[in-house]
Amino acid sequence: MKEDILKRLKQSAVKEIPLPEYGENWIHYEDKAQQFASMMEVVGGQAQCVRAEELAEKIKEQELIKESRKVISLVPGSAVLDEILSRPHDYEDVDLAIAEAQWGVAENGAVWVDCQSLPFRSILFLSQHLILVLKKNALVHHMAEAYDKLKFEKQGFGLFISGPSKTADIEQALVIGAHGPRSLIVFLVEED
């Protein structure tokens, strides 16, 4: 019961300990894109820099697209666009999903994906492969900088994704493709 729990806690009131101040001189990278790309490799993914006008062409060139029977693209202006389905389960047979990411973090190769713009977030996890598109100037150095950018004022779901789905639960052997996507490519888009 809520009342019991709170009453017990309040009875044994502890002296308030202040919140600490954050430091300022945290890790800083000369070339965020390069650091991001090398971390992507560490976490089993891949990052590629492209110019904005080449993006559609680059996506089309991917071997993955050629091999995929069903592709869902949620990036405005990209070459392939599929219909919107009615249940989150309906994306079960998607081979490749392409979506936008809002922020990227150089220190750990994570990208922030706000799912508000997606019809169903299940797309990101059911799809066999995933391509995320991120503006190159949306890269930050570290997580504290990333949280400065994020807002959680409304109901919703967002997440950091760092590489493809993976597990090492059998004898610590790394296996890519546990439940979610078996591969992840992040396109870093340079705008003029």
Binding site: V42, V43, A110
Partner: peptide
């Protein structure tokens, strides 16, 4: 460096 998914 971080878990693959950190879901909010």
């Amino acid at each position: 460096p971080i878990t693959t998914y950190s879901s909010h």
